[in-house]
């Protein structure tokens, strides 16, 4: 059998297996009888914490998983940095700046700078309202990162509106992640359980002090506790992660 033919055979076999595989998965998904399970209790007790159930499940019931998700992003960002020379063995490879390929039009130049202000402020609003309305750290951080993208695309990397170097972005990312980790440590220190939602105080028998509870309490009908602060940490981390990626990729363009 020639090489070409063997390739075709391989593709054919792969296609057959993918077909069988998809059949089983689709069959499994069609006769599916979804059981609510623990999510019923999550939804039943969640309104005691905050109105936005997605935020409550993400940051309270399964807050530790969210920490893991955040670290997947951090690891990916650091890996992108390594790929382009930050932190390789035997010394860093310096990054290069490059100007935009196509000069931007006058409309873009006039409107981009004011728009950056408004987008950043809007991102802050989304981040801080995360436990009440749709939004939160991931979304707010992404919105702020779009302001950075906009200014980089319009003005080029060297002259963009933000004066953020790769290292300062890494610092911001580290601060965001440390906020999350240390808020978890507060719960560990006060109650003995990592990421215990100190302010919400769902389980008063743990004996978390009154002062600590009042420090994180919230003058609202519900009591989100540490969730808004976790959102801030996530927002800093997400925005600096995205900005780092665009910084690195922009520098790599003309290599």
């Amino acid at each position: 059998m020639k090489f070409q033919q063997s390739q075709e055979m391989r593709n054919l076999i792969a296609a057959i297996f993918v077909g069988i595989f998809s059949y089983f998965i689709i069959k499994a998904l069609t006769d599916f009888d979804i059981v609510p399970g623990v999510s019923y209790i999550y939804n039943l007790r969640g309104p005691l914490i905050a109105p936005n159930m997605i935020t409550v499940i993400l940051f309270d019931w399964r807050g530790y998983d969210t920490l893991g998700e955040a670290f997947i992003l951090i690891t990916a960002v650091l890996t992108t940095g390594i790929l382009f020379g930050r932190g390789v063995l035997g010394g860093d490879v310096s990054e290069k700046d490059s100007t935009p390929i196509r000069p931007s039009t006058i409309v873009q130049k006039v409107f981009a700078a004011p728009l950056v202000f408004i987008i950043v402020a809007f991102g802050v609003v989304i981040t801080l309202g995360g436990h009440i309305t749709p939004g939160g750290g991931f979304q707010g951080g992404s919105v702020i990162a779009t302001a950075f993208f906009l200014s980089v695309v319009v003005y080029g990397f060297k002259k963009n509106v933000f004066n953020l170097s790769h290292n300062s972005l890494e610092t911001l990312e580290g601060v965001g992640a440390l906020i999350y980790l240390c808020l978890g440590l507060v719960g560990l220190g006060l109650s003995g359980y990592y990421l215990y939602n100190v302010g919400a105080d769902l389980y008063p028998y743990l004996g978390v002090g009154d002062t600590a509870t009042r420090l994180f309490s919230y003058p609202d009908s519900t009591n989100a506790g540490i969730i808004p602060y976790l959102n801030i940490g996530i927002a800093l981390k997400v925005l600096s992660g995205f900005c780092t990626i665009i910084t690195v990729l922009w520098g790599a363009e003309k290599k």
Binding site: V35, G37, I41, Y64, Y193, L195
Partner: peptide, 25 residues
């Protein structure tokens, strides 16, 4: 148990066959 969420008794609405269920990671 992360977040100090305890093991609780199940409710009939959960539709699972266990007598108690673990809320936390």
């Amino acid at each position: 148990l992360f977040g100090a969420h305890p093991v609780v008794d199940t409710l009939p609405q959960l539709k699972i066959s266990l007598s108690e269920v673990n809320l936390a990671i």
